[in-house]
Each structure stands twice: as C-alpha cells, then as structure tokens.
Amino acid sequence: MATASFFLLAVFLALASSIAFSSDPSLLQDFCVADKLSPVKVNGLVCKDPMEVNADDFFKQAYLDKPRDTTKSMVGSAVTLINAMELPGLNTLGISLARIDYAPFGENPPHTHPRATEILTVLEGTLYVGFVTSNPNKLFAKVLNKGDVFVFPQGLIHFQFNPIHDKPTVAIAALSSQNPGVITIANAVFGSKPPISDDVLAKAFQVEKGTIDWLQAQFWENNHK
C-alpha cells in the first residue's frame, strides 16, 4: 500500500513539474534544424537530417538592419520577427527575436504572447510601455529611452507607444519561445472570423450593439508580419 501511495505521489509530482515548467521543450541533442519541407506534422518542426545541416541554417543575412515602412500602418508600427520558420536553426532552442519600428505617435497595440516572456531594448528614440496583470488588473508602465530595457511576463497584455511627434523609435525584443505567437486584443475581439456575437460583446463591454457592429466593421490591421 505504501509503495502504491509513493508511486502515485511520484506521478503527481512529475505531472505538476511538467505543468509548472511548461514551455518550449528542453534539448535532447545539439540542435534540431527545422525541415520546413517535411510533410510530417508535430508540435513544432521536424528535424532536418544532421548530415545535411550547414552554417547557413543558423544564419540570416542583413535581416534586421533596415527599417520597415510604418507609414502605411494604421497603428504606426511594424514588427519583423525572426522565428524558427525564418531561421531554421532556432528550432527547439526556445528563443526568437524581433525588430519593432514605430512611427512618430506609432504604437504596438495591446497584445499578448501566449508562449513567451519578452524582453525589449530601445535602440533609438523613446517608448511608453506597460503590461497589465491578471485580476485585479494592475498596470505596470514606464517611459523608456535609448538603451533602456523592460520585461513583459509571458501571457500578459502589454503595449508600446512612441510619444514623440517628430521622431521614429526602434526596439529589439527577445522572446523565450521559437514561436511565441501573438494575440492582438482588438483584432481578436472585434476582427475574428467568423465574428463573435454582438450580443456577447455588447454584454461584455456594457455598450449598445450598434457600437459593437461599428467596431466589427473596421479593418483591424496585423502589424506582426
């Protein structure tokens, strides 16, 4: 009986540990370069034959040195992400990188990364940034200048805004997943396909259904490309 109880306790602790530390899986080999041509579907990307791997699988030439055009963006920002699809050598390494360009008064609107914590560094310019905790929804916000660093915990709603009217801003973000994912709040709530019922959203936001219908009729741009 004691042995059975010990076994059940060990299983419970193992499951609890796997849940508590759920993230990109730990490495079991030196690398697992993504085979983007494989038809096999797994949770992640299939490994390329190690004998076919070369230095170019870990290299991306001059990809983040050029600013993205933010003038055509309704929110005034553009996110250039390097994940395992862009750089196959990142597969299973649990990290990705993004350059974010902000026009004057441009913003990266409230969003979450369901699979990653983000650490952001301002390279040029100024940003007002913040994140909101789970209930009771406390805001943590700061104004960042060149060289400043800020962390957004995994899964929490966060944003960045350039408050300067005549100067662009550039930042680099590192994320703790090879595929962090992004849920932009306004896009998800008002731009889903098919749309969420206006009865549901009117009740949730305590507004008239006509307001919800107007919001759902807008074009909700994806600036993460």
Results as ranks from 00 to 15, higher is better:
143 V>Q: 04
184 T>I: 08
213 D>S: 03
98 A>I: 15
24 D>V: 11
3 T>Q: 02
111 H>T: 07
171 A>P: 02
74 M>H: 13
82 I>L: 13
47 C>V: 07
183 I>S: 14
35 D>W: 01
41 K>F: 10
160 Q>M: 13
199 D>H: 07
149 V>M: 06
54 N>W: 03
103 A>I: 05
97 L>W: 04
114 P>M: 04
211 T>W: 11
208 E>M: 01
145 N>T: 09
95 I>S: 03
142 K>F: 05
186 A>D: 15
5 S>V: 14
153 P>A: 10
111 H>G: 02
41 K>C: 10
49 D>F: 05
2 A>F: 05
148 D>A: 09
67 P>L: 06
177 S>N: 13
127 L>Y: 02
204 A>M: 10
197 S>K: 00
105 F>N: 08
136 P>W: 10
121 T>G: 04
3 T>R: 01
205 F>C: 07
140 F>L: 11
103 A>W: 05
202 A>I: 05
75 V>F: 13
218 Q>H: 11
181 G>L: 06
37 L>C: 08
33 V>Q: 03
66 K>Q: 14
161 F>H: 08
19 I>E: 02
111 H>Q: 12
30 D>S: 15
166 D>K: 04
51 M>E: 14
101 D>K: 00
39 P>G: 11
37 L>Y: 13
160 Q>V: 02
53 V>N: 02
143 V>M: 05
33 V>K: 07
202 A>P: 00
8 L>S: 15
112 T>Y: 06
